[in-house]
Structures are given as structure tokens and as C-alpha cells.
């Protein structure tokens, strides 16, 4: 029995940890890569190099410290993203950029490898254990200068040559709210929304109604059966309405009990009186113990 309980607890914890994982580093995606940077974004040293953009595709902040970036399938731990830098924490649905310049001594965001435009470039992101692959991509050879290769929707979508280079910003710029526009165009009277929403509200509550109707029936049956058993034990017949007593009956019984209990109490005197206690002497009130003793000058 105890083992069973421990098993259930462990299962629960495993399920919870799976749920929690969704908000961790596994949500990060390689989002955009520029292999040949001739006239594009410059780094903090004023230099142009290839870069790799990562995107946090979750609603929680993710810290990449301790994770690994690599361009070598056989060496997943090629570049460890340093710990202790607050900038490695990516806010929800935000980006961060790593410079593939092979100058790791230039700071956290400069990796120890570079990208070669003449060959395929394999790029992978590994979790802090160095074995769990978070995301990987192979960039085709022959990338053109200042044209990036990335996901057509940030964090999701397909890899393609992007029409514009967007370092540290969204690959797709949303300049309108498609949902709202859709409603404005197709449902200007709001009838569609009303029908859909009322249908969903009714559906939810109808299912709840049906479910609790069954639960109620089952409950009545069980209480009848229990009452029947109890009556059989005592050898009494049981009413067919057992278990269906109305709340009013219970209210009447409760009121009667309350009144009876209430009557058991006398009407208590609610007048507060202060009676002075006459006591000639008590060591607790003796002044002699509270006085400071005169110093003994001998």
C-alpha cells in the first residue's frame, strides 16, 4: 500500500516535471542565421561577423547559462554559454544574438567557432547536460551576403531564406491584429460571435448539468441503499422516499435543535462590574522590592 502511494507520488512528480520542462530551455529555438555579413549588423566591437539568433518560444523567461552552442555534431559541448551573465536570460518571446566570429574571449555572446559560407553549416543548441539536444539546423551551403536564413514564423514555421534581415527582432513583423480584423470584416454585427460563444457556454454548462444529474441520481441510489441496509440491520422497513428529504426538513430539525440548545443557557448577566479587592499586603505590590537599594559605602 505504501509502495503504491510512493509510486503515485513519483508518477505525479514526473508528470509535473514534464509540465515544468515546457517553460525551460527546451522552449528555445534557433530562429535566424546570417552566414555572410558584409554590410549588415555590427557587433559591440564594430565588426561584422556571422550571427546566430535564438528565440525563446515560451511565456516564461529562460536562462541559457550553461547550455551549449556547437557547429560540430561530434562535439556538442563546443561552446558553453557562460554562467553569471544576466544577459543570458531571455524574456518571454524575445531574442538573443550570438556572434559566430571565433573570438570567445570577446564576451558571452561571441562563440568559439565561425560559419563557412562555402559549406553546409550545422548549428545545434544543447541543454546544460551537454546531451539533450534542444534544437539543430543545417544551413545550406552558398548563402548570399547579407541575406539571412531563418524561420518564417518566430519559434515555429519552416526554415527559409528570409526577405529581410531581422537581428534580435521578430522575423515576421505584425502590423495588424489579424483576429480583430477578421471579426471586423466577417462579423461586423457580432452575430457569429454571439452564436458561437452562447453555444460554447451552453455546451459547457449542459455537460455539467448532465454529469451532475447522473451524480445526483447515483447519490440518491447510494443513500437509499445505505438507509435500506441500516434499516435491515435494525429490522425496520424503510420509506421509499429515503434519501430525498428536502432541505426544508433538515432546516426545521436544525432550527429545533438550535432553539433547544439555546434554551439550555440561562440569560447571563451582561453588566460589567469592577469590585475592588481589599488586600492589606502582597509581596507583588510591595514598594520595598521596587526601590533601588542604597549603595553600601564601606
Amino acid at each position: 500500500m505504501v509502495n503504491k502511494k510512493i509510486g503515485v507520488l513519483l508518477l505525479f512528480m514526473v508528470l509535473l516535471s514534464f509540465g515544468a520542462k515546457a517553460q525551460l530551455t527546451t522552449s528555445v529555438r534557433i530562429n535566424e542565421v546570417l552566414v555572410v555579413n558584409e554590410d549588415n549588423f555590427v557587433d559591440d566591437y564594430g565588426k561584422r561577423h556571422a550571427w546566430i539568433e535564438l528565440f525563446n518560444n515560451s511565456a516564461g523567461s529562460v536562462n541559457l547559462a550553461g547550455c551549449y552552442l556547437t557547429n560540430d555534431k561530434n562535439n556538442p559541448k563546443k561552446y558553453m554559454i557562460p554562467k553569471g551573465d544576466v544577459l543570458t536570460k531571455i524574456p518571454p518571446y524575445q531574442h538573443t544574438l550570438f556572434w559566430a566570429d571565433n573570438y570567445a574571449d570577446r564576451g558571452t555572446f561571441h562563440v568559439n567557432f565561425s560559419l563557412d559560407p562555402n559549406t553546409e553549416n550545422y548549428i545545434a543548441l544543447y541543454d546544460a547536460d551537454g546531451t539533450t539536444l534542444i534544437d539543430e539546423i543545417t544551413i545550406p551551403a552558398g548563402q548570399k551576403a547579407d541575406i539571412s536564413y531563418g524561420l518564417d514564423m518566430d519559434g515555429t514555421g519552416k526554415w527559409t531564406t528570409l526577405t529581410k534581415v531581422t537581428p534580435s527582432t521578430n522575423n515576421v513583423t505584425l502590423d495588424s491584429n489579424a483576429k480583430i480584423e477578421n471579426f471586423q470584416v466577417n462579423d461586423s454585427w457580432g452575430i457569429g460571435m454571439t452564436i458561437t460563444a452562447m453555444a460554447v457556454t451552453f455546451l459547457g454548462l449542459i455537460v455539467l448539468y448532465l454529469l451532475f444529474k447522473q451524480v445526483g441520481n447515483a447519490s440518491i441510489r447510494i443513500s437509499k441503499r445505505n438507509a435500506q441496509k441500516a434499516a435491515e440491520k435494525e429490522g425496520n422497513a424503510i420509506s421509499t422516499n429515503a434519501g430525498q428529504e428536502s432541505g426544508e426538513i433538515f432546516a426545521a430539525i436544525a432550527t429545533a435543535l438550535y432553539e433547544m440548545n439555546d434554551d439550555n443557557h440561562d440569560i447571563e448577566n451582561t453588566v460589567l462590574t469592577i469590585r475592588k479587592v481589599q488586600r492589606s499586603y502582597s509581596p507583588w505590590s510591595s514598594k520595598i522590592y521596587t526601590l533601588r537599594q542604597t549603595p553600601n559605602k564601606k
Binding site: 451524480v215 447519490s219 440518491i220 447510494i222 428536502s246
Partner: peptide, 9 residues
């Protein structure tokens, strides 16, 4: 009148 509801329900 509403019926009595059990604790389980």
C-alpha cells in the same frame, strides 16, 4: 424544495 446534497457531491 431542493433535496439534501451529500458531502461527496
Amino acid at each position: 424544495p431542493p433535496r439534501a446534497v451529500s458531502q461527496t457531491e
